[in-house]
Design a binder for these strands. Structure first.
Ligand SMILES: [Mn+2]
Ligand SMILES: [Mn+2]
Ligand SMILES: [Mn+2]
Ligand SMILES: [Mn+2]
Lengths: 220, 220
DNA sequence: AATTTAATTTAGACAAAACTAAATATTTGT
DNA sequence: ACAAATATTTAGTTTTGTCTAAATTAAATT
């Protein structure tokens, strides 16, 4: 697999987000900042190599072989991201570009040893799950805090309402995407929720709980 | 700079071993396992970019710009080798191939932080010096035991042959890089050498003496 | 259902980096 | 000095991955 082939496979994987979905030529071209005609060429080659299912004008989907290849690249990408943040002290938003290069280094031994060295992490600095060597990983499911039972644990990954007011509230209360959060108690009366976030306990209203997504880690 | 250009620059640097020497097309082709005609093409391109001085049929040498570029790649290569051995527990002879890939990762921040993380090492696991960010490095005054007179004292800093067999021999005989060593006597008949290493006297064959580098403290 | 619009593929071109075979320059040996 | 051997360059191809422009197919609108 060339670097370019790997990036295509990974993009197709991300666009189909684990599903069997058929991905369009234009969607891939947009995502990769390339031209649809280039995508057609590459997709034909990947089809020859049994990495994707492709029929003219009908879009493309990963074969099982392609899916496993994608997961192996995603595994490398996210392990390197952990390395950059945990060991080299990069900020979480600086790592993606470098990991985009490092994910293409060819050495099974390297990635095994890196995994061990990092303590076999299961998520990257953004909270995305890291597939195992065999391509198994905990599929992440994001849900609103208001929809989750007491005791749930997860990582803040998104907002439902992205109004300035809501984002300002998050800033003021030192809540950032990527923060770990646990639900301690829910008040039936008003739907307000006690949470522990970054080792700090606080109470949030139902309006807040209905606007903040948690990524829950469950077995796939 | 493309990956390929970088490998050419680095090869030219190593073949001229720091000197102003003019390097032949065939020497580069041999070293890189490629064809002389490919070298000619690349050398023309590097000349366009002011990385090398080139005149038809007269060989090639690095410009100052080319030399600094080479040193930056060597720096990355050797820092990654330290990382692989010190942090990931690779053996000496396993690191070069992976470092050959890692040296091409583009990120100044990455290599700065890696350098800090490793404790600003000045040599790689084979005892070769690591240039600073500015391209300055201590030119190694290391010599093979077989080339040194009786009475020489020094520190083991590198190996010539990094084969598994040789590294295993060193392990078995508790010889590590950093150990102090003194040459007691040399047998003319077979070139074997008596040494004192870590207050322990032993005799090593000419083959061993020809593969172990000392950094000299006193020469007498 | 016909027409317009959008998506996709094809055809032809290009740049990078490699190759082979042939031409040319340099070096070596007598 | 000159022929033979060797080194180097040139010319022409190949592969990979990209592009533009044109043709074709599919989808959306009237
Ligand atoms: Mn990333
Ligand atoms: Mn990538
Ligand atoms: Mn090396
Ligand atoms: Mn390399």
């Amino acid at each position: 697999m060339t670097l370019s082939e790997e990036d295509y496979i990974k993009t197709i994987y991300h666009l189909s987000s684990g599903q069997e979905e058929s991905i369009s030529t234009n969607a891939i071209a947009d995502q990769m900042a390339t031209k649809p005609s280039s995508v057609t060429d590459m997709v034909k080659k990947l089809s020859e190599k049994n990495m994707v299912n492709y029929k003219k004008y009908k879009g493309v989907s990963l074969t099982e072989k392609g899916r496993l290849t994608a997961l192996s690249i995603v595994r490398k990408h996210r392990l390197w991201e952990v390395f950059l943040v945990d060991k080299l002290d990069f900020a979480w938003d600086e790592v993606h570009e470098v990991a985009e290069q490092l994910e293409h280094i060819k050495s099974d031994k390297l990635i095994d040893k890196l995994d061990t060295y990092l303590g076999n992490p299961r998520v990257n600095p953004h909270g995305d799950p890291i597939p195992s060597k065999e391509g198994v990983f905990k599929k992440s499911v994001k849900k609103l805090i208001s929809e989750l039972p007491v005791g749930s644990k997860g990582v803040c990954v998104g907002v439902n309402d992205s109004s300035v007011a809501f984002l300002k509230f998050l800033d003021k209360n030192k809540i950032s995407l990527g923060d770990s959060l646990r639900i301690i108690e829910r008040e039936d009366f008003d739907g307000s929720v006690s949470i522990v976030i970054n080792d700090r306990e606080m109470r949030i209203s139902d309006q807040i709980a209905s606007n903040l997504f948690l990524e829950i880690l469950e077995n796939k």
